[in-house]
Write a protein that binds this DNA or RNA. Structure first.
Lengths: 246, 246
DNA sequence: CCAGGATCAGCAGCCAGCCCGACACGCCCT
DNA sequence: AGGGCGTGTCGGGCTGGCTGCTGATCCTGG
């Protein structure tokens, strides 16, 4: 059980929301420059927007012309099918960039994701064109964006790792660990995932069904690995949970 | 069947390898500046490296200090488990950036993926620190990187879409379409995926088993949707294939 | 150039995990 | 108080994973 505590730390500590430069400040010089939030805020003119839980931020088909930076809360990106089915492509945590499609080319393009506020959300937004101009004028802005996108890529790839697990039990465990990393707050009993997650929402994120999630979560609870209180999941010991892979 | 031909075009045309500015040139001004390849090449000193099929580019645990730009061929990023199992997190196509972890912070960090040449590979690499300096000196470099990473994110997220499909048949179909987009070359009979794919490799990428892939690919072939000749898969009509979702 | 080994493809049978459909209960919000 | 949403449960049925084997193909080294 060597390294248990070290391993543990991997799953806690979301970036403290208000901290300046929370998106990994550049190594070496502490970069006295403005943070990404400040940059985008200055480009937008406004000091930010608040969106209520469940409201849509953009629909598929909307023109993609703004960049978003999530300040507080969680945003769900999902793909919608004709069948009405909706699968979750990403659950974004604080300080995540999204709407990057608009950065890609100068051409007008359309959103193909549905972005909805998964909790009450605070965010700042700016037109992609302004962002580009800002980069040209101040290279450090480019660096900040680069770091934001890099961390998005790593996040997304761990999600792929989760989804390639064959059996649903492993998938669920892996997903819970991801959530601990991204939304976990450490408490006395363990790490609590700071989201109101319905079984249905979990199912849509990992490609399963509500019933299966209910059963598997029940198993985990019976085995004393997690606790669920009013839709909030607490993982007692991530390291023990991680041993649950089949 | 309106839009069939338009839909078709979504699946062809890999970025022509030698073309300058193949990573989506900025809209508007044709940006007379250097391309990303040229930038990285100049930072590395060398004109590029060639890696033989099957050789490792970096191992998990290696220090992450360089950035890679794939010029030709395909690279597989995978996660390795103690059990010996290996799951594919991404199949990178030409002009993809990887090793982005090294961009993230100034801290020394370690790779956690295994990167291996899936085909014979040509690539250019540069130390992350040099890349950062280059961005500070020339903001257009930042823009180029940004576009590279944005497209990487979109690629990765379509992979997630693939993996959330419940039944293996749908997953496989979806994966084949992704491969057509990333590695397809249009021919007379349809689109050929320019990779030597073993059933095992496909299984590792979409979280299935070799046997199942064999069976499902056999079904697709019997139904006249694909053709397989010495490990190269040809999709006759992507649009027809896309109707195969269950 | 050929021989041998290694990797890959294909087939069958067995069994379990999980999807589906349905239903009842409890909690929250209005 | 009521409606809607979320949770818990049960069986039936089938997809797809696992084992074991055979033949084909590719690659390599003598």
């Amino acid at each position: 059980m060597v390294g248990a505590t070290r391993g543990f730390s991997r799953y806690a500590s979301p970036p403290s929301p208000g901290a300046p430069g929370a998106v990994a400040t550049m190594g070496g010089a502490p970069s006295a420059g403005p943070t990404l939030v400040e940059v985008i805020r200055s480009l937008s003119g406004s000091s930010g927007e608040t969106i209520e839980r469940g409201k849509t931020i953009f629909f598929p088909g909307d023109p993609a012309e703004r960049v978003y930076l999530l300040r507080r809360g969680a945003v769900r990106l999902s793909r919608v099918y004709e069948s009405g089915e909706e699968i979750t492509v990403a659950l974004l945590r604080e300080n995540s960039l999204f709407g990057v499609l608009s950065l890609l080319t100068g051409q007008r393009s359309d959103r193909f994701y549905h972005a909805v506020a998964f909790t009450r959300v605070e965010m700042v937004t700016a037109p992609a064109t302004s962002v580009r101009r800002a980069i040209e004028q101040d290279a450090s802005v480019g660096l900040l964006l680069l770091q934001g996108l890099s961390s998005r890529i790593l996040q997304t790839e761990t999600m792929i790792e989760t989804l390639t697990h064959r059996d649903m039990s492993s998938r669920l465990v892996s997903f819970l660990l991801v959530l601990c990393r991204d939304f976990g707050v450490a408490g006395q009993e363990g790490i609590t995932i700071d989201l109101r997650l319905s079984h249905q929402a979990i199912a849509e994120a990992i490609g399963s069904t509500r019933v299966t999630i209910t059963r598997l979560l029940g198993d985990l609870r019976n085995d004393g690995l997690v606790q669920i209180d009013r839709k909030k999941i607490t993982v007692f010991d991530p390291v023990a949970l991680a041993k649950r892979f089949s």
